Computed example of a mutant assay.
Amino acid sequence: MASEQNPTPKQHPTSTAGHKITLYEQENFQGLFHEVTGPCPNLKETGLGKVGSLVVHTGPWVGFEQTGCKGEQFVFEKGEYPRWDTWTNSRKSDSLASFKPVKLDGNEHKIILYENPNFTGKKIEIIDDDVPSFHAHGYQEKVSSIRVLNGTWVGYQYPGYRGYQYLLEKRDYKDITEFGAQKPQIQSVRRIRDMQWHQRGIFHPTN
Score class of each variant (00 low, 15 high):
Gln73Phe: 05
Gln73Pro: 12
Phe74Gln: 01
Phe74Arg: 02
Phe74Ser: 02
Phe76Lys: 07
Phe76Ala: 15
Phe76Thr: 06
Gly79Leu: 05
Glu80Ala: 10
Tyr81Ile: 10
Tyr81Ala: 09
Pro82Leu: 03
Trp84Ala: 09
Thr86Gln: 15
Thr86Gly: 11
Trp87Glu: 07
Asn89Val: 01
Leu96Phe: 10
Leu96Tyr: 01
Ala97Ile: 08
Ser98Cys: 13
Ser98Phe: 03
Lys100Gly: 10
Pro101Glu: 09
Val102Met: 08
Val102Ile: 09
Asp105Lys: 07
Asp105Arg: 07
Asn107Phe: 01
His109Ile: 05
Ile111Glu: 06
Ile112Ser: 06
Leu113Ala: 04
Tyr114Pro: 08
Tyr114Cys: 03
Glu115Ser: 09
Asn116Trp: 14
Pro117Thr: 07
Asn118Gly: 02
Asn118Lys: 01
Asn118Leu: 11
Phe119Ile: 07
Thr120Glu: 15
Lys123Arg: 13
Ile124Glu: 02
Ile126Glu: 05
Ile126Leu: 15
Ile127Gln: 06
Ile127Phe: 11
Asp129Gln: 14
Asp130Arg: 12
Val131Tyr: 13
Ala136Pro: 05
His137Leu: 10
His137Gly: 07
His137Trp: 15
Gly138Trp: 12
Gly138Ala: 13
Tyr139Ile: 03
Gln140Ala: 08
Gln140Arg: 09
Glu141His: 08
Arg147Tyr: 01
Arg147Leu: 06
Arg147Gly: 02
Val148Cys: 03
Val148Arg: 02
Val148Ile: 14
Leu149Glu: 13
Leu149Lys: 05
Gly151Ser: 09
Gly151Trp: 04
Gly155Asn: 02
Tyr156Phe: 14
Gln157Trp: 04
Tyr158Ser: 00
Pro159Cys: 06
Pro159Glu: 06
Pro159Lys: 04
Gly160Leu: 07
Tyr161Val: 00
Tyr161Ala: 00
Tyr161Asp: 00
Tyr166Leu: 03
Leu167Gly: 09
Glu169Arg: 10
Lys170Met: 08
Arg171Val: 04
Arg171Trp: 01
Arg171Lys: 12
Asp172His: 12
Tyr173Pro: 12
Asp175Asn: 15
Thr177Tyr: 04
Glu178Thr: 11
Glu178Cys: 10
Phe179Trp: 11
Gly180Ser: 11
Ala181Ile: 11
Gln182His: 07
Gln185Ser: 09
Gln185Lys: 11
Val189Ile: 11
Val189Tyr: 06
Arg190Gly: 04
Arg191Trp: 10
Arg193Trp: 05
Asp194Gln: 11
Gln196Gly: 01
Gln196Pro: 01
Gln196Arg: 01
Trp197Ile: 15
